[in-house]
Design a binder for these strands. Structure first.
Lengths: 187, 187
DNA sequence: ATGCACCTGTGACATTGATCACTAATATGA
DNA sequence: TCATATTAGTGATCAATGTCACAGGTGCAT
């Protein structure tokens, strides 16, 4: 399990055993059942999560009670309501398990401690953050430039496994269309 | 001019004179006329840009030659095609001046040099990147959950000055609607 | 001052996607 | 195993937005 975290980090920065021990000591492990909430809108967000196994969705519920999926988080992904996490305020989004999921948890204190005491980890987080930013920008572009059908096809191409793991209803919510419209795209 | 850059950085990390000298030595200044391109789709992206004054748009041109504005960059903002910048590949987007604009330029080498030799700058970039990521995620949420009218109102609330500085056509392109639709939202 | 490019508003119509209603199929839990 | 909830597909209709066409206004360059 910790090998997974280690090799994930070492894809970006090398750590010796001692360094990794220190890093690891700042994480805790948690396991959640399918359909369990890791946190809900309105709660304080105390941790950022690295997904060891399972599948999460980050979702927002609007004033008409419609759910919108901001992102899925699969194995090897980091997820949280990062605004709430970094500002230590209450979540506007919820994090929900689509499958039984195991995560490593990192508190903001630990995050900051690692950044200041293990420079390589600051580099690691910087790289991750840059990639996250670029990914979000791609998603914006996709929402601006393509219709439902094209977005669906892009998604299938990029994450073919998702189709097996989540319901069409969830996919529709991620793509920003109603489930009925999604259903009609391939019929 | 360099005071502007310095106080921008010092909003996040303190630098002494010596440190700032070193930082500054990695930037170069450039000035662009209104309507000039800083880079175009297909070109290599060698710099990231900090806007001292003026206004930029980052845009993508789709296969039907429609322009989509991914973001505006006003005073104190950083902008580039960050995917192309970090991977040193060709731009898929273009960066264009909506006004006469002065920028500080930072090459990827300089960026990396600063990150490794001036830890505070790595902290600075990490914080910037996190904020950028959070901002993008807000934008995704806005595109997923609101219609054209609400997005327009959100934009006016957040950046009231934009309305004075850019044409409605540009605003529409940022909001992801046709200019005709935008025009009808307030009539 | 003249001409031209660009911006803006608006009518007519087409298209996309949302909503509501219903049915069937599948999965889940007691 | 049975009851119930969830999921998926589809028709009918409606609302939002796009597209095309045109006209008037504004500002810039020669």
């Amino acid at each position: 399990m910790q090998e997974k975290l280690r090799s994930h980090i070492e894809k970006i920065v090398r750590l010796n055993d001692e360094e990794f021990e220190l890093v690891l000591s700042h994480f805790s492990i948690a396991e959640f059942r399918k359909n369990q909430f890791i946190f809900k809108e309105g709660e304080k967000v105390k941790q950022a999560y690295y997904v060891v196994s399972g599948l999460l969705k980050l979702l927002y519920t609007d004033s008409s009670a419609n759910q919108h999926i901001i992102s899925f988080a699969m194995e090897d992904w980091w997820e949280s309501d990062f605004y709430a996490y970094f500002t230590q305020t209450k979540a506007t989004m919820s994090l929900h398990c689509l499958e039984k999921t195991t995560v490593y948890c990192l508190s903001l204190d630990s995050y900051q401690h690692l950044c200041t005491h293990v420079p390589k980890m600051e580099s690691f987080f910087l790289q991750k953050s840059n990639l996250g930013f670029i990914g979000s920008q791609q998603r914006i572009l996709s929402l601006l430039t393509t219709n439902a059908k094209e977005r669906y096809e892009q998604l299938l191409e990029r994450y073919p496994s998702l189709l097996q793991r989540v319901s069409k209803t969830q996919l529709a919510s991620y793509l920003g269309v109603s489930r009925e419209t999604l259903s009609r795209l391939y019929s």
